[in-house]
């Protein structure tokens, strides 16, 4: 497949007849690749494509677009966003991993793809963080365990004492929502049935309609219903309390070893020259500092997690190991069946 490596286009607003003539001279094709010097002095040599392994509209897409918009000025090149959904992002991630390591093609990484999905799918579908140059962490998106307000259940203590079997809704197989709940219920000794839904919205609808007893969904999705008093937040699964839901304890505070959050980072193919990475890092730093980007985070209830790339890679690898250990220890199988 062809990467958009080089093209200058779309400054043409003139009449169409004229535009064609201009287009032929002003537009570079994107078929033939051109080689870039490895010292990064020529970087960026055209638009830097940011690949997103999710469909437009989801939180990964929103984050990618907000970042691209605010970083392109600092980089001195446009950052077009290309959505390539497929296999929870594995498709796009693998594709960028095999792209030319010149910094012109980047990808947004989801931590769950490296740390949680491998627990649910076969080994050859899994992706490894070592195969990427992580430029910088972006942000953290927290999961919250909610119950229907009508049930009156507000704390973990009430849940454990309820003495009944719970149907818990997850946002899908191999997601943080599933892992967090499965671990929590096993540790708390609650008898639960894992009911996977296709994303957060249907899981929440099922909870609101009392089709299931509890659900774990991403904070931004649950917040409107929590504020409206229709859902009770029980615990959040982040390591520390979430700034947007400061009154809700973490699972760890409630006494359960379940630290699960969705982290995101931006990465380039392995072997991208250090000077290029440096330029990219600086551009994203400027973006993080901009008011527009901060407002975006606040509006979507994301917590900044703008750690250094090397640290991110280390953290995610550690998370992957920890989840694997926890899953074995508590005999949690995300593959549902078996």
């Amino acid at each position: 497949m062809i990467k958009s490596t080089f093209s200058r286009r779309s400054v043409l607003g003139a009449g169409t007849g004229l535009a064609l003539a201009l287009a032929l001279t002003a537009c570079g094709g994107n078929v033939a690749g051109n080689s870039a010097p490895s010292d990064g002095s020529k970087f960026p040599s055209g638009p830097v494509t940011l690949t997103i392994g999710a469909a437009p509209g989801g939180s990964t897409d929103l984050i990618g677009r907000a970042l691209a918009e605010n970083a392109s000025a600092g980089l001195g090149a446009p950052i077009p966003v290309v959505n390539k959904p497929g296999a929870n992002g594995a498709l796009a991630t693998k594709e960028v991993g095999g792209a030319k390591a010149d910094g012109q093609t980047l990808v947004i990484l989801n931590a769950s793809l490296f740390a949680i999905t491998p627990l649910a799918v076969s080994a050859d579908e899994a992706v490894k963080i070592e195969d990427y140059e992580v430029i910088t962490g972006i942000s953290q998106d927290d999961y919250v365990l909610v119950t229907n307000a009508g049930s009156g259940l507000k704390t973990m203590e009430q849940l454990t004492k309820a003495g009944k079997k719970f149907n818990f809704a997850t946002t899908g197989v191999g997601t943080g929502s599933q892992l967090a709940q499965a671990l929590l219920f096993k540790q708390a000794g609650i008898d639960g049935t894992d009911v996977p839904f296709d994303g957060g919205a249907p899981a929440m609808t099922a909870l609101l309609g009392n089709q299931v007893d509890v659900a774990t969904i991403q904070l931004a999705e649950a917040m409107p219903q929590i504020k409206a008093g229709k859902l009770n937040p029980v615990v959040v699964f982040s390591k520390e309390r979430n700034q947007y839901l400061a009154d809700t304890p973490t699972a760890i505070e409630a006494g359960y070893d379940v630290p699960v959050s969705q982290f995101r980072a931006v990465a380039a193919p392995k072997g991208t020259p250090e000077p290029v990475l440096e330029k990219l890092r600086a551009a994203f730093k400027t973006a993080f500092a901009s008011e527009a980007y901060k407002a975006f985070n606040k509006q979507n209830l994301f917590t900044a997690a703008e750690n250094d790339g090397a640290q991110v890679a280390k953290d995610w690898a550690a998370d992957a190991a920890k989840f694997k250990e926890l899953a074995q220890k508590y005999d949690v199988d995300l593959g549902g069946g078996k």
Binding site: V121, S122, G172, V173, P196, D198, G335, G336, K338
Partner: peptide, 9 residues
Amino acid sequence: GRDGFTGES
């Protein structure tokens, strides 16, 4: 595609 309940392809 991937089965939404077992993760099997």
